[in-house]
Structure formats: structure tokens, C-alpha cells
Simulated scan of single mutants.
Amino acid sequence: MRTTDGSFVLGLHRSGHARDLLEAAVDLGVTRLDTASNYLRHRSHEALKTTAGDLLPKFSVSTKVGFFPEGHSLDPARLRTAVEQAVKDLGREPDLVFLHNPEHSASDAGTLGPACAALADTAKAGLCRSWGVSTWDPRPLMDFDVPCPDVLMVRAGLLVGLDVLEAAETLATRWRPSHVWGMSPFGGSTAQEVWERFDPRVFLRGPASATKVQAAFRSSYGLPRVDAVAVGTDNVDHLRELTEAVAYEVDENVVQEYRQLLKARQLP
């Protein structure tokens, strides 16, 4: 069974790409940034290069391609051009490039397979170090075979429905990625009412000092089992809170009980 290393990835979705946040990330030992070509109104790469400047070499950078100003596309030539543009805009090769939400355009293996092969080719050509697939909804992709990606990124956490959770695990088994990452552990925001009504600290072993936010974040590493979790914030205190949560231990028995409850709720 793959083990979880508790790696933290600072996501830049909805982020302002502020310098003080990036400086705090370096101070806190965060070494991974995740962005996409369409973040910050398709200006994320340029903004990151300008804002991070001398800090950028301190990070491993992952990005995503597939969304263009005029819409989503899996055209292999466009994807390669997007990766080449990312290299120019970042001023360096990305460490990892994801195919971004291919379920938007993948009607059959004739579109998804060549798109994945195009990204695999960019890695072979030295335009990036590795490639992967990032999917918000893995269910439409479960029956497709693609070249083995280095990383599969899926939604993770307590707000992921059982159907999406199981589809992500099926996809990981079918595609055999070297690593699986999670994303969006709070379902978009820690301010949602659900986090007021529910105490996720039941999923942790021991420390009563953990906050609800920390418990919700740490438990996401087991739903599904992932090696790293990408989460965004523009608040330095929130960033510190999340990085400290990685040290907590998840109670696997509680996670299994929770999964059994999800399955029981789906029974007729």
C-alpha cells in the first residue's frame, strides 16, 4: 500500500500571488507551488515570475494546461504550445505539468490518449520534468487507458462524495501513477457552515490542541489516500496553521468507519 508522506503544496488558485505569502512559505519550509495557465485571468505564470523573482528557484513548480481564453481543448499541438509558453512566462521549465480537467473535453480515448501522450512528450523533450493529470471529476475518465502519468491529482477530503472518492481510487489503480495528490480539502472555503456544525478532530489521534481546520486538512490525506495535498490561501496565519497540521496523525480506524458510513448511506 502506498504510504502518505504528508507533503504540503501551496496552491495558487484564487490567490493574489502576494510576495509576503511566498516569503512566509519559504520560511515555513513549503517547497511546492501549484498553479495553472488560466489562473489569475490567464496571467498566473507571468505574475509568479514577477512577484516571486529570486524566490522562485526555491520552489518546485507544478502547473496545468488545457484551459484557454476561448475554452477547453485537448488538442495535442495546442497543449505542447501551452507548455512552451509556460516555460517562457515562468522563465524556467516547470517541474510538473498537469493536463487540466480533461473530463471537460474527453469524449473518447481518441482525444484523451493523444493529449496525455503530448504531455508525456513535453517531459521527454525537457520542457518539464514530469507530467500528470488533474481532474475535478474522475468519473468520466475511469474507462480510459492512457500513458502512465507521473502524478494524478484528484479532489480529497471530507466533502468528497463516495462516488467521486471511489472513482479517484479506481483511476489510480488503472493508470498506476507514481504519486497521487489531493486538492480542495475544504471544498472551496473554511468558512462554509459545515465546518461549524461538524468537528473533524475525531479523525486525529491524540492532540486536542489541533484546530478544526487542521483536522479537516490532515484527514484529507486519507480520503482518498494521497501523497500530498494542494491547498490555497492568501493568509500567512492560515498557511502556518496548515503546515503545522501535517505533523498530526490520522486515526485510520475512524477513516474506515467514515467510509463505511458513506457506503451505508448509498444503500437503497
Rank of each mutant, 00 (worst) to 15 (best):
V194Q: 04
V254F: 01
G232C: 09
S134A: 15
G132D: 07
S130C: 05
H100T: 10
F198A: 08
V133T: 08
H42L: 07
D234T: 14
V26H: 09
L162V: 14
D143F: 04
D108W: 08
A210K: 00
A47L: 09
L22V: 10
G29W: 04
V226K: 00
R139Y: 03
E46Q: 13
L127R: 11
R259S: 02
A156L: 02
Y258G: 00
N235Y: 03
N235W: 05
S189L: 12
A82I: 03
D89W: 05
Q214K: 08
L90R: 05
M142I: 15
A228S: 14
T173N: 11
V97N: 02
D145W: 04
L55A: 09
D145Q: 13
A216F: 01
F59A: 11
K124R: 15
E70V: 10
R155V: 07
E196C: 14
A52Y: 00
L152G: 06
R176F: 04
L171M: 15
L48R: 01
L12N: 02
L171G: 02
R19N: 10
F186C: 11
L12P: 02
D227E: 12
D143H: 11
P185A: 03
A106T: 05
K58M: 11
S73I: 09
T3H: 09
E196Q: 15
K88N: 12
M1V: 14
V83N: 01
Q192M: 13
E244L: 12
E252Q: 12
A216D: 02
L119H: 02
S62M: 05
D227M: 05
D89C: 09
G132I: 13
A18D: 12
M153C: 11
R139N: 04
K212N: 14
K212L: 11
G53K: 07
P268Q: 10
L40D: 13
A123D: 02
G188V: 12
N38D: 15
V180A: 05
D234C: 08
L242E: 01
N253S: 15
R78M: 13
